[in-house]
Simulated assay, not measured.
Amino acid sequence: MARNLDPKCRQCRREGEKLFLKAEKCFTDKCAIERRSYAPGQHGQKSGQRLSGYGQQLREKQKIRRIYGVLEGQFRRVYAEADRRKGQTGENLLQLLEGRLDTVAYRMGFGGSRAEARQVVRHNCVLVNGQRVNIPSYTLRPGDVVQLTEAARAHLRSKAALEAAAGRGFPEWLDVDAKAAKGVFKAYPQRAELPSTINESLVVELYSR
């Protein structure tokens, strides 16, 4: 299975903001952005660098890809589906990415990070409507019930991730019972409920060239 093996903290520094790729470390002062808020590499501390319009669009696409942990080919397919659907393409894109099983598993606290939640899914530890699903890109529908298997609930790592997620609070579009490690995907999130640091319109402009 192809995946991005670049160091997680380096990816955050490249984008200049926290992408929350390293579980609980991202919520502490050990986060790389807190200590070195400049881009990695020999020329990372140079100031005054300005990106062209195309550069800004490309940077935004890369940031979204890194946040959701999808490769270029996957991202293009998701964008094509978002463009095909009715409504605003940018909002559809984010909704489809948020509707992925690995993303929902992360939001529900089944893993400390999206990468960890993806691994939980791949290891047959997640049930969707009572059936095992081990495809991280599986698209959920409103009303789907997602839960950890009994064996997975017993793992200390899963318990810690669930407790941490419950402490931070769950998104409005999910109904989660942390004690039962179970939740309902109520609806696709509205744009106002998603991070304002994402500018999906730049991605739409990039693919509209």
Rank of each mutant, 00 (worst) to 15 (best):
T89Y: 00
R65E: 12
L96A: 11
Q45W: 05
Y54G: 04
K22I: 08
E34W: 07
K63W: 03
K30G: 15
G90P: 11
Y54P: 01
F27W: 12
V70L: 11
F20M: 10
E72G: 03
R59W: 02
T28R: 03
G44R: 02
G69V: 11
G109K: 02
R107K: 15
K22C: 08
T28V: 05
K22E: 15
Y38P: 12
R66K: 03
D102H: 08
R76D: 01
G73E: 09
L97D: 10
Q49S: 12
S37F: 15
Y38V: 10
F27R: 14
K63H: 08
Q88N: 14
G73A: 05
A39L: 11
R65W: 12
Q74E: 14
M108V: 13
G48F: 12
Y79F: 15
A82S: 00
G53K: 00
G87V: 10
M108S: 15
L51V: 05
R100F: 09
L71F: 04
G90C: 12
S52T: 14
E81D: 01
P40M: 08
D83C: 03
L58C: 01
D83K: 12
R59K: 13
Y106C: 02
C26N: 05
Y68P: 00
T89P: 04
Q57L: 04
E24H: 04
R65H: 06
G48L: 10
K22W: 02
G99F: 03
A23W: 05
L71Q: 05
E81Q: 15
L94T: 00
K22P: 01
R77Y: 01
D102E: 11
Q62P: 11
G53P: 07
R84N: 14
C26F: 11
A80H: 11
S52Y: 07
I33V: 12
T89I: 07
L94I: 03
E60T: 10
Q42M: 06
E24L: 08
I33K: 09
V78E: 03
R85P: 07
R59M: 00
L21S: 05
C31D: 13
H43R: 15
A23N: 15
R36F: 14
Y106W: 13
N92G: 06
A39E: 08
F75L: 09
F20T: 01
I64A: 00
L97T: 04
G73K: 13
F20A: 00
F27P: 05
D102A: 04
C26Q: 03
Q42H: 15
M108A: 15
R35P: 01
G99W: 04
K63L: 01
